[in-house]
Design a protein around this nucleic acid. Sequence first.
DNA 1: ATTATTTTTGCAACATAGTTGCATTTTTAT
DNA 2: ATAAAAATGCAACTATGTTGCAAAAATAAT
Lengths: 144, 144
Amino acid sequence: MGTKQQITEKITALLKDSKLSVTDTRMKILELFMKSNGALEHSDIETQAGQSFDRVTVYRTLQTFLDKGIIHKIPTTDTSVRYAVCKSECSEHDHHDHHVHFKCESCGTTTCLDETNIPEISLPKGYAMHNVEVVVSGVCKTCK
Amino acid sequence: MGTKQQITEKITALLKDSKLSVTDTRMKILELFMKSNGALEHSDIETQAGQSFDRVTVYRTLQTFLDKGIIHKIPTTDTSVRYAVCKSECSEHDHHDHHVHFKCESCGTTTCLDETNIPEISLPKGYAMHNVEVVVSGVCKTCK
DNA sequence: ATTATTTTTGCAACATAGTTGCATTTTTAT
DNA sequence: ATAAAAATGCAACTATGTTGCAAAAATAAT
Ligand SMILES: [Mn+2]
Ligand SMILES: [Mn+2]
Ligand SMILES: [Zn+2]
Ligand SMILES: [Zn+2]
C-alpha cells in the first residue's frame, strides 16, 4: 500500500507523466481508484469523495483518464459504466488491458484478473479482430 | 426469411409457447428483432417501430422477453443496452447463449456469432465461474 | 357470443444519468 | 509576479429508466 505521503507522490508522478495538470479532483479520484480493490463507477466516486466535487467534473475527469490510458472501462449488461486503473503498459490512445474481468454475484464488486489471460478465439472467415473483452461472473475468492 | 404471414405465425407461436398474451406491441417488437441482422437497443426499437408505442411499454416488453428467455443482453462499455434474440435452447430464467458477440467498429452493429464457442478460461484459485461473456470488436464480414 | 377476469398499455410524474456553454478559479508557463 | 492556459462549477438541457394508476385489450369462463 504505502504511506499517505508515498501514495500522493505516486499519483502526482502519474499525472505529470500523462501531461495532466495536478488538481485536487484528479488527485482525489485517482486515490479512490488506488485504494479500491475493485472497479468503480461514477456514483461510487461521487459518494466516496464526500460530495465535494461537481458531477460534471467527475465525468470530465473520468473521460480524461480514459483518454490518457490511466483507466479503462469494463463492459456490463446494465447501464452502469465501470472503470479500473490500467497497468503501466497502457498509454494515450493505446490500451493493453488484455486480461479477464470478474464480477462477483455475491458482493457485486468487479475486479481485474490481471494474471488471467484471454485465450485465443477463432472468428468466422471475414471477421477482423481488434479487441476482445471477457467478463466472467460468479463468486469471488473473498465471498466463497 | 419467409412470407409476412409465416413470420406472423412464427411470432405468435413463440409468444404462446412462452405463455404470453399476443399483443400488437409484442408482435411488432419481435418482428423487428427477426428482421434485424444485429442486436437492437431500446432507441432502435422506438425509432423503427414508427413512434407508435409508448417508451414505457417498450421497456416492459424487453424486460418480459428477457424473463422468458426470448432475448438476451449483450454487454457494452457505454451506457447502452443491446438485445438479441435467443436460440431455441433458451427458456425462462435459463439462458444458454454461450457464444461470442461481435461489435463492428465500422458499421456499429453488434451480432451474435452463434457458431463461435467461448473458450475455456482458467480462473485463479478460489473463484467460482457461473457465466462468461465475450465481446469481440473489429471489422465485420460485410464491412471488410 | 357475452360477460367476467386477468393482463397489458399509456399517461403522468418522477428519478437518475450524461452533455454543453460559459464565467470563475486554479494551475502552469513566462 | 504576471500572463497564458487549463480545469472547475454552475445552470440549463437532453436522454434514459422507473413507478402508480386508470383505461384498454386480451384471455378465460359462462
Ligand atoms: Mn481491467
Ligand atoms: Mn447473442
Ligand atoms: Zn465477492
Ligand atoms: Zn460492419
